[in-house]
Design a protein around this nucleic acid. Structure first.
Length: 648
RNA sequence: GCCAGUGUAGCUCAGGGGUAGAGCAACUGAUUCGUAAUCAGUAGGUCGGGGGUUCGAAUCCCCCUGCUGGCUCCA
């Protein structure tokens, strides 16, 4: 008589012969859905787990995040399997599932080419069709080391040596075996809808100076449809690429002769930037900020004192002037602190809120430069707040509100907020850290904002709040940061005279809302796909006269708009209307006004809205009034429909 | 910085040892036109820069530079 165990799968109870694998049991039951793994008393396991004890089992089905991660992990194994089949001399590194797919690192004398990639993908498909069972194997550490040594897999050998426990789990599919914790899908046939995307370099164990490996990236899904959707999404992202749209829309450019990471803002980009800056200033003044200006260089000693020479790598070498070394500024902080220290401050003066659009220069290594998002010269929307302990919480709240208000206006309403707390190595007093961290938490709580705590992940000089915004494609971008700085406060010995007549150290809050003008502009371009809302668009209205005889009227309208501080333009070229409209549409002009005989006679214009098409005739005064309202309110939508009733 | 790929007209791309090509854009002319491309013509390039191999280099090799995908970095 064989022993049985009692297992509860979901809500149904079963009595099963002890030791039978879950997979086998499910097959016998003709389980109609296709799980990929299971949770055995809460622990994630493979489906072929032996049912050796009474257990509560939850099956993991496609559709869940966990299942997708398992699938992708198995896809990574399939990739390595294919690579070793085609190129047996290759050594395999590590191959995890990542955010949008998976990768596997390989060590090989000749790097993989694009052609290799399609061969590998082809081989993966073959192996998938063979539907090879994936089995978990447990070895002793010594056995495992010997096994991989025999296979010439030194990287794996090294990994097991370093990380392997006494009993080492491996996964085998056919003649491919990998050191891995799992779990995995039951067989290679589960991995069907995948695509290899790119090859790149990667360092062994992520250590710079370590061995250079070849990393192959891919993605995998449970259905063809999902895979297709993801690939379309990638295409969509490409179409929004600000590096493409920027020069196309004549917003900015780079120039090889000028140098890498240095931006040329064109007139149209300059317009948008000015509008952003004007708005930025307006909001800051509302919140009691003062605007500062500071130089682009300072004596090297300033940066020695601030600690930047010591902690900060990304500085350009000093410039020598009359035997004194000067340094191009990578930060604005010391300047603001010097303004603070320019006179004795009283507790009555605080808080100070000082903001500056400060242009800084950082030596970013060539390989990290990326469009407007990572450059060598950029303008931070910086500010420093000096306040007393009793003002701290209020000041943080104000800064958060300002950030939210500004970001909302630009059309961002989806945020990820992070609070980083004290790391092991830190400067300043522990009690100040505690006080500051509590204030940050309280401020977030008060604002009703959800946030995640990165325990011990703070920078050495103070706790901070980071706000990441999500754009139209749900991609996350770091913009706002609100940081306490105990380091500079001490190094520059900032003080105020308190009510008690003694010197006290104020809290120093460092904060940026948009991050940098360049970066934020890049994000905006991608968010809006180059089609800016009316209040931001470099050209808001394109006036299109149908024939030469309508040019005068077109110019009259143009003049009227300009007098109202609107950005309009007349396309008086001797081209057909269709041509001019197409041109304006390609340039993503939000509003197009067409004027012909009828409009001249009636003092009207025919309105066309970008991507929405013909909206019919409008009365100019009426249109102007409504447009001004939209611009004044900084209405994000280009859609005039709600405020504008289409004439029939 | 590292690994790999890549740079031909303003843009998109063809040409891969034997006189540099197309479409769009630009310019000129004709067309005066009603909601995403009118027609014809003209001009435009040290093929990213430098060096080498060769009778001859856009093409092959080396160095530099920019860009792209990653890695590392982003106190």
């Amino acid at each position: 008589m064989s022993e049985t165990v009692s297992v509860k799968i979901g809500k149904s109870k079963h009595s099963v012969p002890k030791g039978k694998s879950l997979f086998q049991f499910l097959s016998e039951q003709n389980w109609n859905k296709n799980p990929v793994a299971a949770k055995f008393n809460g622990q994630m396991v493979d489906l072929d787990v032996p049912l050796s004890q009474d257990a509560q089992i939850q099956l993991v089905y496609p559709g869940s995040e966990e299942a997708l991660e398992i699938l992708r992990h198995s896809a990574a194994h399939l990739l390595a399997h294919a690579v070793l089949t085609l190129f047996p001399e290759t050594q395999i590194g590590v191959g995890p599932a990542v955010e949008d797919g998976f990768y596997y690192d390989f060590l090989r004398e000749t790097p993989f080419s694009q052609d290799d990639l399609s061969d590998i993908e082809e081989k993966m498909r073959e192996l998938s069709q063979e539907d090879i069972p994936i089995r978990k194997k447990v070895f002793s550490k010594d056995q495992a080391i010997r096994l991989f040594k025999e296979k010439g897999q030194q990287l794996k050998e090294e990994l097991i040596q370093e990380k392997g426990p006494q009993s080492v789990t491996c996964y085998q599919q056919g003649d491919f075996i990998d050191f891995c914790l799992g779990p995995h899908v039951p067989s290679t046939g589960y991995v069907q809808h995948f695509k290899l995307l790119s090859v790149s370099g990667a360092y062994w164990k992520g250590e710079e100076g370590g061995k250079q490996l070849q990393r192959i990236y891919g993605t995998a899904f449970f259905t063809r449809k999902e895979l297709k959707k993801h690939l379309v999404h990638l295409e969509e992202a490409k179409k929004r690429d600000h590096r493409k749209l920027g020069p196309q829309l004549d917003l900015f450019s780079f120039n090889e002769d000028l140098g890498a990471g240095l931006i040329l803002w064109h007139p149209k980009g300059g317009r948008v930037r000015r509008i952003i800056e004007d708005y930025w200033r307006e909001e800051h003044l509302k919140d009691g900020y003062e605007i500062l200006y500071s130089p682009h260089i300072a004596k090297l000693d300033v940066w020695r004192r601030s600690g930047h020479t010591e902690f900060y790598e990304a500085m350009y070498p000093p410039i020598l002037s009359e035997d004194v070394e000067y340094q191009l500024k990578p930060m604005n902080c010391p300047f603001h602190i010097m303004v603070y220290n320019s006179s004795q401050r009283s507790y009555r003066d605080l808080p100070f809120r000082w903001a500056e659009l400060g242009t800084v220069y950082r030596y970013e290594r060539s390989g990290v430069l990326h469009g407007l998002l990572r450059v060598r010269g950029f303008t931070q929307d910086d500010a420093h707040i000096f306040c007393r302990a009793d003002q701290l919480e209020e000041e943080i709240k104000k800064a958060i509100s300002l950030a939210m208000r500004v970001l909302n206006t630009f059309g961002f309403s989806d945020f990820d907020i992070f609070l980083s707390t004290r790391p092991e190595k830190y400067v300043g007093k522990a009690e100040d850290w505690e006080k500051a961290t509590q204030s940050l938490k309280k401020a977030l709580l008060d604002k009703g904002l959800e946030y995640r705590i990165d325990e011990g992940e703070g920078v050495f000089y103070g706790p901070k709040i980071d706000i990441k915004i999500k754009d139209a494609l749900k991609r996350s971008w770091q913009c706002t940061t609100i940081q306490l700085d105990f380091n500079l406060a001490e190094r520059f010995d900032i003080t105020y005279v308190g009510e008690d007549g003694n010197f006290h150290r104020p809290f120093l809050i460092h904060r940026a809302l948009l991050g940098s003008m360049e970066r934020f502009f890049g994000i905006l371009i991608e968010h809006y796909k180059g089609s800016f809302p009316v209040w931001l668009a470099p050209v808001q209205i394109m006036i299109v006269p149908i024939a030469d005889r309508h040019n005068d009227y077109a110019h009259t309208l143009d003049q009227k708009f300009k007098e109202n501080k609107l950005r309009s333009c007349v396309d008086a070229r001797r081209e057909k209307v269709g041509y001019k409209i197409r041109d304006a549409e390609t340039k993503k002009t939000p509003l197009i006004l067409i004027v012909g005989d009828k409009e001249v006679k009636e003092g009207s214009a025919s309105l066309r809205i970008h991507t929405q098409g013909d909206k019919g005739e409008v009365q100019v005064e009426d249109f102007l009034e409504k447009l001004l309202e939209i611009v004044k309110n900084r209405d994000m939508s280009v859609n005039l429909e709600e405020v504008y009733h289409q004439k029939t």
